[in-house]
């Protein structure tokens, strides 16, 4: 026991307590960066790192953080972690860091992170906080990747840059039958609609999630 008794901390955010589709947090970055699958995956990994490590740090410090300045302390910790992620991306994945630079900064204000710090890590032990962080970041990441998958596939006809549907200029693959890429998928409104469809599917499968 011990190790697995808290597994619901990971599985809940992936399904019925998903931070994006149920709690409707972190929508901003979910819409902004999901035009490509690669950016979605990197953003998911970055948030996984920041939220996992951040939750543990906050949890370890939960008894020494002065309550008057606890929000500021949380902000400093998340900002420091994000700057470290940004520096690492700049050093080892430069091209990616250029596309992501704006959004990496956005992690600081991602409400999922501040929300988990405040609601969970400040009141729980490090291991449970770590699981909670990983679970919520994974729940966020899964939605990001699903949205990114459909937007890149339908918008550009590629996945991770590979032309899975054929060449749109030379009219090979499905383009030979008159298929066209839907450029609208690359814009933010279609990200919102894609997200809406995911929320719709999830709630139609589990009626308990529908609010009055």
């Amino acid at each position: 026991m011990g190790l697995f008794k808290d597994s619901n901390l990971i599985t809940d955010p992936l399904t019925d307590d998903n931070p994006i589709t149920i709690q409707v947090l972190g929508i901003c970055s979910a819409l902004a960066i999901t035009a490509e699958l690669e950016a979605s995956i990197v953003m998911a990994i970055a948030v996984l790192f920041v939220l996992g490590v951040g939750n543990v740090i906050i949890s370890l410090m939960r008894n020494i953080i002065p309550s008057k300045i606890r929000i500021i302390v949380q902000l400093i910790i998340v900002a420091a972690l994000v700057i470290i992620v940004d520096l690492i991306l700049k050093a080892f994945a430069y091209q990616l860091s250029k596309t992501l630079s704006v959004f990496v900064g956005l992690i600081i204000t991602n409400c999922i992170i501040m929300g988990r710090f405040e609601a969970f890590a400040l009141a729980n032990k490090p291991w449970r906080s770590f699981l909670d962080g990983i679970g919520n970041a994974a729940g966020y990441g899964v939605i990001l990747i699903i949205v990114g998958f459909f937007r890149e596939l339908l918008g550009s006809g590629t996945l991770l840059g590979f032309k899975v549907l054929g060449d749109s200029i030379e009219k090979t693959g499905v383009y030979a039958y008159g298929y066209e890429n839907n450029g609208f998928m690359l814009l933010a409104p279609m990200a919102l609609i894609t997200l809406g469809i995911i929320i719709w599917i999830q709630r139609s499968k589990n009626k308990a999630l529908i609010e009055d």
């Binding site: 008894n63 020494i64 953080i65 002065p66 309550s67 008057k68 300045i69 500021i72 302390v73 400093i76 910790i77 420091a80």
Partner: peptide
């Protein structure tokens, strides 16, 4: 941890470390 003196010391220490 609610004392003002503690809060100020904590803030200074935190800034130095980070």
């Amino acid at each position: 941890t609610d004392k003002n003196s503690y809060t100020i010391l904590f803030a200074i220490g935190m800034v130095l470390v980070v």
